[in-house]
Amino acid sequence: MLIALDWGTSSLRAMLLDGGGAVVERRERDWGILSLPQGGFAGACAAITEGWPAVPAIACGMVGSAQGWREVPYVAAPAGIDAIASRLVRIAPAGGPVLHLVPGVSGRDAAGAPNVMRGEETQVAGAGVETGLVLLPGTHSKWVRLEGGRITGFDTFMTGELFAVLRGHSILGRAVPADGATAPLCRDAFTRGLAAARASHQGIAPLLFSTRALVLSRQIRAEESLDYLSGLLIGDELRAGLATGGRAPCTLIGSAALVERYRTGLKLFGAPAAREVEDAAASGLWRIAQAAGIGR
Rank of each mutant, 00 (worst) to 15 (best):
G80Y: 07
V129H: 13
G104M: 01
G119D: 09
T131L: 15
A77Q: 05
D82T: 09
A110R: 05
G119F: 02
A125D: 13
T122F: 01
P103L: 04
A110K: 00
G128Y: 14
A76H: 07
A79L: 06
R87V: 06
A110Y: 00
A83Q: 12
G132S: 08
V134G: 12
V105S: 01
S86P: 14
G126P: 01
P73S: 11
L88T: 11
V105K: 10
E121K: 01
A94D: 04
V72M: 11
R90Y: 02
V98G: 13
M117P: 04
I84P: 02
A83I: 13
A111G: 04
T122C: 02
A77H: 11
L88K: 06
G112Y: 04
S86Y: 00
A125C: 06
T122V: 06
P97V: 02
D82A: 13
A79F: 15
A94P: 13
G107D: 11
S86R: 07
V134R: 15
I91F: 08
A83G: 07
A125E: 10
L133V: 08
Q123L: 01
A113P: 02
A94H: 09
G128L: 03
G132K: 14
G112S: 00
T131D: 15
A110H: 04
V89T: 14
N115D: 13
T122P: 01
R90H: 08
E130R: 15
P114T: 03
A77M: 00
I91H: 09
M117G: 08
D109T: 00
R87K: 05
A127G: 14
A77G: 08
P97T: 01
P103H: 03
A92T: 07
V105G: 09
V102A: 05
A113S: 03
T131R: 15
P78N: 05
L133K: 05
G126L: 06
V129M: 09
A77L: 04
V134T: 12
Q123P: 08
G107Y: 00
A92R: 14
I91E: 15
E130I: 05
A125T: 11
